[in-house]
């Protein structure tokens, strides 16, 4: 009961907060009207963007500008991390980082994934953390918001989708930076360290000298949560007491995880001029989110099977393994956080996912497989748009009418691009997991055998492909094969699900507007909501159920047989 009350308060409160912020985000990303102050700001953004800042871009130019900017960020950040031992802001004299780990880390932060095969407090200098990783946390999140704004403009029927470099500045300076400043201040007040001093040294009661890592954690934490980045300043992420000290910082983090992805839905609805459609999409996302929370909490109230053979361990209150008790309730940092962080492609960790009961552990995987129940900032709504295209097409076929979305006909070309987007995600996860499960690349890195071991491999590729970044753990993943494979998956499946939907929007924008008639499929009523929900579940189940059966479901059935 506590868990569901907490979930309702966090999710409901954030949904309410997202209403005015979604309105503000629309104003920030898609200014309309000749407000004089805003016009000055826009001129400044265009000037900063240089000669390219004044042109209006079609989908292809927008996509190329996005890729070129992200490639440049990849190179600059790569140089900072690779050369950190020679650069300033390194008070603890952090050494060189191994080459494949640099590739994985920079690919991870460029792609808004923040999968970490390293521990920040062990490997990264403050310069690497701030100028490379935190900088990428801002611009990668801004890339997602910019891409959604461009997509929405295309769907609104505008032949030009905006200017990427201008949109990037709007998202960074008007949306993410002000929010991050507020949240970082609140986190610092809540006890999160914010200092450029090196590690503290203390003498324990036993007289042992202890080195306590610290740093500019509050700044890092704020954008990591708001930008659905999720990468921890410390290795244990938000289970570390300096990254999440209290019940209140825990609650604030969960709000921040959900906030901007929720605002993205409202922004989309306003730009396409269909706020009622956005309300329906929001409701479908909420249903899926609460469904996953309920299942995860339900299965987590059962004792962990890991202690089943130990009669002296009482587990009347459910599975406490891998939970942080300072957050007041084991469910707040356990199943609730794990579902929120994986539904939103955030990936910060508030409990040990490896310790969740098998069916509770399945829910984070479902979140990453669907990747559209709010999803990443901007990109979650883009993923949902792909499901909408599939749903519209299926609904049109079922009733024998030409499928239409927002007064534009959805034809075979758009459908092919949508299916390719869905299949790319599945392909990266399933092929990657199959190859690593069948070879020493994956097998030699496992901490567990059997279905749980398979879950560890499956989770890692799911996390990489969904640009989530959380770890199931129990996997020795800092090896060359893991670093290269997940690095490539993160980069490819960051941009493919942005490029192809932008192409769909560009294609739809060029089509003649069709008049609404009695036969037009309404995309803002409950029938379409049910159709969309069914499509998401059907596509997800058809694609990933066999893999789920081999991992968490098999493990659950094995435990049920034993007990």
């Amino acid at each position: 009961m506590d868990a569901l009350l907490l979930a309702t308060l966090i999710v409901g409160g954030t949904a309410l907060l997202s209403l005015p912020l979604g309105r503000y985000m629309t104003w920030a990303m898609d200014p309309t009207g000749p407000a004089p102050r805003r016009a000055g700001l826009e001129r400044l953004f265009a000037r900063v963007a240089g000669p390219l800042g004044h042109e209006q871009q079609g989908w292809k130019q927008y996509a190329i500008a996005m890729l070129a900017f992200n490639a440049l960020m990849f190179v600059v950040s790569f140089a900072f991390v690779a050369l950190q031992q020679h650069l300033p802001l390194n008070p603890d004299a952090k050494g060189a980082v191994e080459a494949s780990l640099v590739f994985n880390t920079v690919a991870s932060f460029t792609s808004n994934t923040n999968l970490q095969h390293y521990s920040g407090e062990v490997s990264m200098s403050y310069l690497s953390q701030l100028l490379s990783l935190m900088w990428l946390q801002f611009v990668s999140a801004a890339t997602g918001i910019a891409a959604l704004a461009a997509l929405a403009r295309g769907l609104a029927g505008r032949p030009e989708m905006g200017n990427f470099l201008v949109d990037l500045q709007r998202a960074t300076l008007l949306v993410l930076l002000p929010l991050a400043l507020i949240v970082a201040t609140l986190m610092a007040l809540g006890g999160v360290p914010m200092t450029l001093s090196g590690a503290a040294s203390a003498t324990t009661l036993e007289g042992v000298q202890q080195v306590i890592a610290r740093g500019p954690v509050a700044a890092f934490l704020a954008i990591k949560q708001l930008g659905t980045n999720g990468g921890g300043f410390f290795g244990p992420n938000c289970t570390h007491p300096f990254e999440n000290p209290t019940f209140w910082t825990n609650g604030l983090s969960m709000i921040c995880i959900l906030l901007v992805p929720m605002c993205s839905v409202w922004m989309f609805g306003r730009i396409v001029g269909r706020p009622r459609h956005a309300r329906l999409v929001f409701a479908v996302m909420l249903v899926l989110l609460f469904g996953k929370i309920a299942v995860a909490v339900w299965f987590e109230t059962a004792p962990t099977q890991a202690f089943a053979a130990l009669p002296e361990v009482e587990q009347v209150a459910g599975n406490f393994e891998g939970k942080e008790m300072r957050f007041g309730t084991p469910y707040g940092s356990g199943p609730l956080w794990s579902v929120l962080t994986t539904c939103t492609s955030n990936g910060s960790v508030g409990a040990m996912h490896d310790s969740l009961n098998p069916m509770a552990g399945l829910m984070p995987m479902v979140g990453m497989w669907l990747n559209a129940t709010f999803g990443g900032v901007g990109v979650g709504m883009i993923n949902m748009f792909v499901y909408i295209v599939v749903a519209v097409f299926l609904a049109g076929m079922m009733v024998g009418r030409t499928p239409e979305y927002l007064n534009r006909r959805v034809e075979a070309r758009e459908m092919k691009l949508a299916v390719l987007t869905v299949l790319a995600h599945a392909l990266f996860i399933l092929v990657g997991a199959a190859v690593f499960a069948a070879t020493p690349w994956g097998r030699d890195t496992l901490a567990n055998w059997g279905p749980h071991g398979f879950s560890e491999i499956l989770y890692e590729f799911s996390s990489a492909s969904a640009n989530n970044g959380s770890g199931f753990e129990g996997l020795g993943d800092n090896t060359v094969p893991w670093n290269v494979a997940t690095g490539l998956v993160m980069l490819l499946n960051r941009y493919v699900p942005i490029l192809l939907p932008l192409a769909i929007a560009g294609s739809l924008a060029r089509k003649r507007r069709t008049a609404e008639s009695a036969g037009t499929l309404g995309v803002q009523d409950a029938t379409f909501g049910a159709m969309l929900l069914g499509t998401i579940l059907l596509v997800g189940a058809l694609t990933f159920l066999p893999a789920a059966v081999l991992g968490p479901i098999a493990e659950h059935l094995l435990f049920a047989q034993q007990s």
Partner: peptide
């Protein structure tokens, strides 16, 4: 040296994504 190889790998991935963008655009124009 190995660092340069991984840097090139990342840039090759971005180049492949740009090629994909061009290919989709050409396919749409057909």
């Amino acid at each position: 040296m190995l660092h340069l190889f991984y840097l090139a790998l990342g840039l090759a991935t971005f180049a492949a994504l740009m090629a994909l963008t061009n290919a989709v655009d050409r396919w749409e124009q057909d």
